[in-house]
Design a protein around this nucleic acid. Structure first.
Lengths: 107, 107
DNA sequence: TTTATATATCGCAATATTACGATAATAATA
DNA sequence: TATTATTATCGTAATATTGCGATATATAAA
């Protein structure tokens, strides 16, 4: 197997899980943290900073883009990757909503 | 490869990522949601409710236990799995702290 | 135009995850 | 004690993820 049975869950559950999944890698956490400490955010910095190969960083950036957390603009010969603040806040709310709705104590 | 280079990240980054990773599967989201709607929380219910095999549910429960989100007590011949509310709140705070510290706009 | 720089994508190998049937372990019940 | 019910674990197959070198692409600079 190895394939997640997405069809037995609803869209909200799949989306929420996908979002958590993308954040579920230390390199992607580190990338977000590094970007947030900078005023300019260029991929090349990340390769030196994080210590993974350029191809690997590029792949992680792609996943962060896939859930809308990063937006990238071409700036000269490099890319300017930044956190999309609207999406960031939206996801934080979405996630807090899950936490607040789900918490329950029975034991 | 396929192996995450945890050693190049700090403990906080690895922990945070691990936490996100465990929540990054729709079955585990569904399990938490289902448990939170019940006063008694028994694994056997989950198998019918979620639609995955008993062995699979048991595996997912184990992962949720691994980050402390669930606590289980033996109750007769079945298990009572519940959300550990202290840990739940702790993780929610930890996660909000990450979101609040990391958000930044440069573009 | 040529060269250098920056990023994305492809292809692959190693490892991890997901799912499940079979079976073990444990406790209640007949 | 034998049976039934519930959950955990083992073994395995299918698929996904991680990471990287090689290469393609695109822009700036020489």
């Amino acid at each position: 197997m190895g394939i997640t049975k997405s069809q037995i869950f609803d869209q909200r559950q799949n989306e929420l899980a996908q979002f958590f999944k993308v954040l579920g890698h230390p390199a992607r956490i580190a990338i977000l943290q590094h970007i947030s400490t900078q005023n300019s955010c260029i991929c090349n910095d990340l390769v030196d900073e994080i210590g993974l190969a350029q191809a690997t960083i590029s792949q992680h950036l792609k996943e962060l883009k896939s859930i809308g957390l990063l937006k990238g603009e071409i700036e000269g010969k490099s890319m300017c990757y930044c956190i999309d603040l609207d999406r960031w806040n939206e996801l934080q709310e979405s996630l807090n909503s899950f936490f607040n709705k789900t918490k329950h104590n029975c034991c």
